[in-house]
Design a protein around this nucleic acid. Structure first.
Lengths: 364, 364
DNA sequence: TCTCCCGTTGGGACCGCTCCCAACCCGCAA
DNA sequence: TTGCGGGTTGGGAGCGGTCCCAACGGGAGA
């Protein structure tokens, strides 16, 4: 796959000069062994059990003892061995972030990078790792399902599911704690999820277009087998009311390229419009390219609005009016819920809807 | 932090209707226990030790026995318990991807998302997890250093280090297997790394500008305390030879905004140029915005070239001429090297330089 | 035929932690 | 003084693997 142009296996730190390089005696250099709970116990003059209690909340440990244990921990630089703890507790210590997308291009979107970042940050204090997994197609999805339900993870954070996701059925059956990012169409009651009110947000941004004097607003939707695609279209439709006209509706798949195609379709079919609401910023940029190539000016001839408030919105020329999608808050909330689920706290599924915000820029 | 607009703690699957919801007896719902190596041994009529051998390469196991063990594994749906294996092997089973960036805006860049994706994909068959960690500032970096060197991970994949990275010193001291993505300035001999020939790539793209008839090529560099920033500037300089003129050089920090500022500086100081090489696609987009606002047309008045061939290059108008940065291959190679390092295979540091490719588009 | 050796195999001894039960201690009511 | 009960504490029994050593068996060489 990769063809190294140059590859030099250098000696061990030759730059050390006259300082004799330390000859490593053991083959698979095992790091100097860490202090264990036993070492802490010995130093603090208590038993393993007491140290363990001290480590886990300190309930039923005398304050004086707790303090001496903590001193010992600090003195030795002790940190708990997660593998041992996980084995003893019967859990795996990791959480999977499942990105069940079939389109490679969705990785272009920096938004999911925010999820990775926030998940890992929020999971760390919970003593859990983030395991990023992806499934490009059905067969990979099958394997992924096997993996997840085989007990390799304690919980699942699921991104952007399609409504026909067979994975959803397996997750439900396996009773694996799961939180869905977005609304799992058709499975709303079976899962906990965190989402935004797509419809309301779309309604507001289209209403903004109407308020600013635009007479006919077209749209390029996201894929309609996603809750986001559906919700945003519904909001568009509600905002236009009687003015809704199917000739003004084209469809895309979230990719920049599909936004371009969508706008081209609208133009080719002779639809007349002076505003365009696009289902995502990425698609909006593609659409603007198509409009420009067709000689339409933005916003003079056509006002363009996107969705998400991703970096792309600022890269566009002119900068895009859009809706801020609270990715960070979504991620934080999802981890919180998942933690409750994994700990067996609370009852049943949790459903959270986060607020969005209209961001007006020069494109409208 | 997040203020849920609506939050309903639903009952347990009320939609099940007349079907009585299963009352969960155990508090912290422990999943049905998985089959263990002991179960496999019993079913296959062999001992634990033999199953273990079969699981780990099957050396010194008779083919017939190996087969019956594999049958038992399949029949039971057995998968190894990583926590137990890690405990027994004295390893943690995870690898940290350290993003030691101070600028939040670097998360905008979808490039590092590619790293996350490829790392997790490549690490899975090695039985290791990817732990994504970040450090925004020095104090976080301190904590991160504590964490890494406390034995929580078996290896480190380090992204985009600055030359003053105190983290580098700690990693060297701790002897933690580490692979750097990019060249660790001043620490080249102390680490293994995977990089591209920044200088050569920059040389080629600037030479392309010169070849296409441009007389004066300016540049907006990346931060000069990074190897990428330095290397790309060096290539620019070498390509211009005698024509190098400091007045044509401005500096940025990889962000789109800094690209804009860099171009503005060049214009303000009255530098004359008909071509502009920008250190990254993101910065190039910012620079193009500044040029356009100053009334310069791209590419008619000024040809603009970027670097990385990220999605942004295609979002630009016109699409950017750039250099393809082989992120995926870099990630694959880095994991391969890290695996060798962690296993104690090979000797010393490894240094790999991957090839790049000039991508010519409409901006030049 | 009798060693010797090597490929196989079984099973004991951990790895480092949590969980749980029994023992202990001490204050307070009878 | 004795009995009782609850907060503390110690330590045994795993959790599910790997590793290593001893035992076994059979073919090759003496």
């Amino acid at each position: 796959m990769s063809v190294p142009e140059v590859r030099s296996d250098g000696d061990v730190a030759p730059e050390l000069g006259s300082v004799a390089p330390v000859a490593d005696p053991s083959r698979a250099a095992r790091r100097p062994s860490r202090p264990t709970i036993e070492d802490v116990a010995r130093l603090a003059g208590v038993s393993r059990g007491t140290v363990s209690r001290a480590l886990n909340g300190g309930r039923n440990v005398r304050p004086a003892v707790l303090e001496s244990v903590n001193d010992a921990i600090a003195a030795l630089g002790y940190t708990v061995n997660q593998a041992a703890r996980n084995l003893a507790r019967g859990r795996t210590g990791s959480v999977a972030f499942v990105i069940s997308e079939r389109q490679e291009h969705l990785f272009e979107d920096p938004n999911w990078g925010v999820f990775v970042k926030v998940f890992s940050r929020e999971l760390r204090p919970l003593g859990r790792h983030l395991l990023v997994t992806t499934a490009q197609d059905r067969s990979e999805e099958q394997l992924l399902g096997d993996y997840l339900t085989a007990g390799h993870v304690d919980g699942v954070l699921l991104a952007l599911p399609y409504d026909d996701e067979p994975l959803l059925a397996r997750l439900v059956a396996s009773q694996l704690p799961t939180v869905v990012l977005g609304r799992p169409l058709g499975w709303e009651a079976a899962f906990s999820w965190v989402m935004i009110d797509e419809e309301e947000a779309a309604f507001e941004i289209v209403a903004h277009l109407v308020r600013s004097g635009r007479r006919r607003t077209a749209t390029v939707t996201g894929p309609l087998d996603t809750s986001s695609g559906q919700g945003r279209l519904a909001g568009y439709r509600r905002a236009l009311g009687m003015g809704y006209d199917p000739v003004l509706v084209a469809h895309g798949d979230w990719s920049m390229q599909s936004g371009r195609l969508g706008a081209e379709q609208l133009l080719e079919r002779g639809a007349e419009f002076d505003a365009l609401f696009v289902g995502s910023d990425h698609m909006a940029i593609g659409a603007m390219q198509a409009l420009r190539e067709a000689g339409r000016r933005v916003p003079a001839d056509v006002a363009v609005a996107g969705f998400d408030d991703s970096v792309a919105a600022l890269m566009a020329d002119p900068p895009l009016t859009t809706v801020r999608n609270p990715f960070e808050e979504t991620a934080v909330e999802a981890v919180r819920i998942l933690d409750d689920l994994m700990a067996g706290r609370g009852s049943g599924r949790r459903h959270v809807v986060l607020p969005t915000e209209l961001v007006v820029r020069a494109s409208t």
